[in-house]
Design a protein around this nucleic acid. Structure first.
Lengths: 684, 684
DNA sequence: GCCTTTGCCACCTAGGTGGGAAAC
DNA sequence: CAGTTTCCCACCTAGGTGGCAAAG
């Protein structure tokens, strides 16, 4: 397990792989890829064509780059020594969260997302608009949802408060947008929605849904990978974007009536619960009604613009400009929920109410309530010295102070500002309030033991599943990684690349949600049974066997619109490490052990992945994986931001977390962080 | 226009293209591909791995191969000289029509498919089960619907009769299964449905729907192409499968009440019209009620087996075993509709009622009524001498006589028996009653002028659209081909490879059916704006500039289940040439001239396709393209089958058509046919 | 009892049916 | 006038909502 499968030459791999990825034995695939990933730069091969991005929104992105290593320079370097035979691509992705206003509204109240056994969509739908991609290059877009911290919450006295340490992390799944791979031109043509991603609390889910723990806080993440085949994902650079305002608490039933009302008022499918004069459900009182409906109207308008196919069935497609739907309705209700960010996760009534500690001077329109459970970003920011260890910095955090000044010029488009980080070169792009951007070099540091097997699943209602490399949700299974306890979930360390087998792929008339299990023709998906390395924020490099090939880049969090800017960017759950504090290994999941239908999925696995997978699974046994030191974690947020950069795997992780959480007020520092990850497997 | 864009070296193209297809300028793309296509063999590169197919159903496929050039030999030859760098693949696809029983029931009555402006699905859904593919190789599956003949029909006195020549052909579109490309393993995992393909009579359709002429007869076709990128389609071998029982007449309103009732009884969406005691629509009398519902039950059962995702939303997913739903209900009603097959298309009351002229000795359960408008296959078969010109044979027709003997051993699986044809080597596979199989070598003979531009479209309800090469419907526009008048529609000559731009791709919340037109972000699809060469049956090679690289293979039609076998295989509309008889160029369509939203679709087009496209358009001006000699066509079916193999473009086409139409009783002959295709452009 | 989860429900959206009147 | 087409409709399927009672 975790043997250096990634050994071989980059060149050897790509040429071969490019022609017929699927015919290539996984073993060979893995063997050929490793050596090529030098601990070099993090930027994607592209960006060379145009020395300076000329994309509309991206124009100012590079302005503040540190001379150490500009975006383009980095890209160039990478392209030269990287194993990627890819042509030089000119891209500088800028990502904007759609319906940001709506997200902000929810965020202020403390977003809740219902999770059910059968799978539930997210309500404000996670949708982003992308700019700056290379028109011709192909990209794979992904999304995952990682734990925002290692705490469990409870809604008490109209407040969210910590209720102990987080439960064991559920198998994480990386959801590949079904349209992947597609050209940059196609992705940029219209907003990219992930409404097919469903949330569930069913640990035995066979649909490839994202499994979450109820009463835990999560942070959705969006990833852009320039690759024309999902098989290349493990060796590709991940550009990760985090929109703090999309943070949410998973619940099995809504806790906050205001959230419920906001959902009802904006989700067209809940129209039946609106108090539109029609005798409807009583419970809720018209908390909102004023300028409501705006979001829906926007959605419908959007629908006009683009044709819908199976992939575009998400009713809520509202653009960022929702014109503050709730208006007077919800915004005034600033719940004083505890900002549990770096809480010690002890059951207590300590309702963290630092939400008033606005992260930035806020160029927002006055009284924007901070998210009920937003972190005390301001506090943290102050704690953080600007002495980031640039040499091995993992994050490239922009100077938000500067951004604030310019933020008002920008709409609510949270551009993604990619910067170089490996060399410690930090560039504060002038464009402010971008989402947190983390760029990860191809995780060549995976050992076969980390490879993941698919978890298949029929993807039931999951949007059209395009089999093979055409876009299948990646099922991530943290338990199969051999890394430190706290290395997972946080920023998506070692996501497992699993493919959906089930029956969802080829379109049939069948739609039963669960029938997939033991169907005769389970539609084996043997493509991507290898894990995806570090997704975003710092992750332990799996035993430190690797040359730290990847670098992280953080381009400020912001993501707040001119109005709600500071408020929404308050909580920065980017990289909480759920495993750090949880010591009760309740469940362990091994795709192969799950009741999931994993038929015929042995092709690639059997060749070279099975062993690795098993290895990883073994090491991450229930007891081992989830048992992590909680104490040190608690105090993290206090010390993290400052200087724990090159700290030990666990602490360093947390440090980075803290930094991220305080992004709103980030100073221009860029931090590199690398997690040695003691031993990949069990933390024990 | 029509400049030899296809010039260059195969090797040059592939290596490059494989890595980043979309980054490759179309001009270069085209230039590199041409030379590689020798007039060689037609079989796909695969089949080398295993000298003898060991697939369950395919086991006997090679049994009857003619020694001239076996399937594998051909494949080997091709792989050596072909430009395809593809590895040797072992495949021998067998295709089975799902819900064949249901199709048969409709076919007996004379299937009608409603076409509406907003697009209508086909009711028995076109769904096939595939076997014998190479597990690891990637395939692109396509479907198109071609005119079955060049006549216009009218339903008079409860009979379908010819009502003159066919109207000008509408722009034909090749629909790529959205899951494409996918591995053979994935395709074989479960039936492949094409329920996202919609039929319309809206000549300005922007959704990529298939545009048909009302009151005209059509024949759906299914294609398997081993390719990992739609960009390679033009240079890939097409294996075409035709199921005669899926023939239908497009109507704007049902003409035959029995068809209506059959639809209502079997289509779950029409449940509201069933006379289940509930006072419902009066009109129809319970024509069927006996063992009905079977199909639906089957569908639901199917749904259990496989998960549904956006691509699997088609309610009707019944397997082939529908247990003869209508039972006594509809089968007894054998309408004596005219079999207008090779009619002269003159308005007359001559109700062709040769349906009793069963094509084969029929091992079917007795009184299977022939399709009302089925062709006089038997007659035709007899006319055909077994003196196929093997040297340039286009069709490889199996010996059905032999098949008949063995057919009863087979279920209703109409296996696809691929055979070599180019060398004249014909192999009569022992497995009988396969659908008509036509294998086309990569149509390298396209000249730039034939290249097609996309017609984009949002694919509205069209199933999830996977942009880029992941699967987008190909929009075929006959008008942009430079070829003889009658060369189109019939067997899909020169289908245009157009991609859907619209908004369907990236999943958004928007679903409006028509809003695509002028949307801000039209999602340009510049991938496959080049036309797809000969799809199935003989087609004019566009001016004869080419070395006749493609070969056709026919592997018997059959496709009939043990019970209804002979009956269903009666009509063989495979390659009627609608243009041959139509001399009234009513409309001309140039994707660029349509009100379709073709924004940003210029990338590849502008590089190397625009010119070609325009060229093609120019040459195929309205007046030119549709003006074709009708007379010769009429008599075709009489003379066609016998020896018109190497005949002139037009006649040869018809000859092959005739042959195909009589497939049910095909003798062991295999015919190769190649169409010189005078000049690619305008027939004038 | 409290807290949380589950299952079922009514009520929506989205869209696939053919009927039937009206239009062409 | 007859043949066709169009449009709107009621009626379905499929599935996304939160409520709510009951169960853990």
């Amino acid at each position: 397990m975790r043997d250096p499968v990634f050994t071989g030459t980059a060149m050897a791999y790509h040429p071969f792989h490019a022609h017929r990825p699927t015919d290539f034995p996984m073993s060979a695939f893995l063997a050929a890829a490793q050596p090529s990933f030098f601990p070099a730069l993090s930027l994607p091969p592209g960006a060379l064509t145009k020395p300076i991005p000329d994309h509309g929104l991206a124009g100012a992105a590079e302005a503040g780059l540190h001379p150490a290593l500009s975006h383009h320079q980095a890209a160039h370097l990478r392209s030269m020594k990287s194993l990627e035979p890819e042509e030089e691509v000119d891209d500088d992705p800028k990502v904007t969260l759609e319906a940001k206003d709506l997200w902000d509204q929810f965020h202020k109240l403390g977003t809740e997302m219902v999770i059910t056994k059968s799978g539930r969509r997210m309500f404000p739908p996670f949708k982003v608009r992308i700019n700056g991609l290379d028109k011709k290059a192909k990209y794979i877009l992904l999304m995952d949802i990682v734990a925002a911290d290692d705490c469990r919450y409870k809604f008490h006295n109209s407040r969210w408060m910590v209720a102990g340490k987080a439960d064991p992390e559920m198998p994480k799944r990386m959801y590949i947008h079904p349209d992947s791979p597609a050209t940059g031109e196609q992705w940029m043509a219209k907003p990219v929605a992930f409404h097919k991603l469903k949330l569930t609390n069913n640990i035995s889910d066979k649909h490839g849904f994202t499994i979450l723990n109820s009463m835990h806080k999560y942070q959705p993440r969006f990833h852009i990978v320039r690759a024309n085949d999902i098989l290349k994902l493990p060796y590709s650079t991940f550009r990760t974007y985090v929109f703090p305002e999309t943070e949410f608490v998973a619940v099995t039933a809504y806790q906050n009536d205001k959230i419920t009302q906001l959902k009802i008022d904006n989700n067209p499918f809940a129209k039946g619960f609106r108090d539109t004069g029609n005798g409807r459900r009583e419970k809720r009182k018209q908390l909102t009604m004023p300028s409501l409906r705006m979001y829906e109207d926007q959605c419908k308008a959007d629908r006009e613009g683009a044709d819908s196919d199976a992939s575009s069935n998400d009713p809520p497609a509202g653009k960022d400009a929702v014109h503050s739907p709730l208006g007077a309705g919800t915004s005034p209700l600033r719940f004083s929920r505890p900002s549990r960010d770096e809480k010690t996760c002890t059951d207590s009534e300590q309702e963290l109410e630092h939400h008033d500690e606005r992260c930035t001077a806020s160029n927002s329109p006055g009284p924007e309530p901070v998210s009920p459970y937003s972190s005390r970003c301001e506090e943290r920011v102050r704690e953080r010295p600007s002495t980031e260890k640039k040499d091995d910095s993992i994050f490239s955090i922009r100077n938000l102070e500067k951004d604030k000044v310019e933020s008002r010029h920008r709409k609510d488009t949270t551009d993604a500002l990619t910067k170089d980080s490996e060399a410690g070169g930090i560039s504060a792009s002038k464009d402010a309030f971008s989402p947190l951007v983390v760029q990860t070099e191809s995780p060549s540091h995976f050992s076969p033991g980390h490879l993941q097997s698919l978890a298949l699943s029929g993807l039931h209602s999951q949007q059209f599943f395009n089999p093979l490399n055409t876009g299948s949700p990646l099922l991530f299974h943290p338990g199969q990684f051999a890394m430190a306890p706290g290395a997972f979930s946080a920023m998506g360390m070692g996501h497992l690349l699993a493919s959906v087998s089930g029956a969802s792929a080829l379109e049939n008339g069948s739609i039963s949600a669960q029938g997939t299990g033991g169907t005769p023709n389970p539609f084996p998906f043997h493509l991507s049974q290898h894990m995806l390395a570090s997704q975003g924020i710092p992750m332990p490099p799996f035993g430190g066997l690797f040359p730290y090939p990847y670098t992280y880049m953080a381009a400020a969090a912001a993501a707040a619109s001119a109005s709600a800017l500071p408020a929404t960017s308050t909580s920065n759950p980017l990289s909480r490490n759920p495993f750090l504090g949880s010591s009760r290994p309740r469940l362990r999941f091994n795709p192969y052990q799950l009741p999931v239908s994993l038929p015929q999925t042995t092709s690639l696995l059997s060749t070279g992945l099975s062993g690795g997978l098993n290895a990883g699974s073994e090491s991450s046994k229930p007891g081992s994986r989830e048992t992590s030191p909680a104490p040190e974690h608690h105090s993290n947020h206090k010390t993290g931001g400052s200087s724990g950069r090159a700290a030990s795997p666990k602490t360093s992780m947390k440090d980075s977390v803290n930094e991220l959480q305080s992004i709103q007020r980030l100073v221009s520092g860029l931090e590199g962080q690398r997690e040695p990850s003691p031993n990949a497997d069990s933390p024990k």
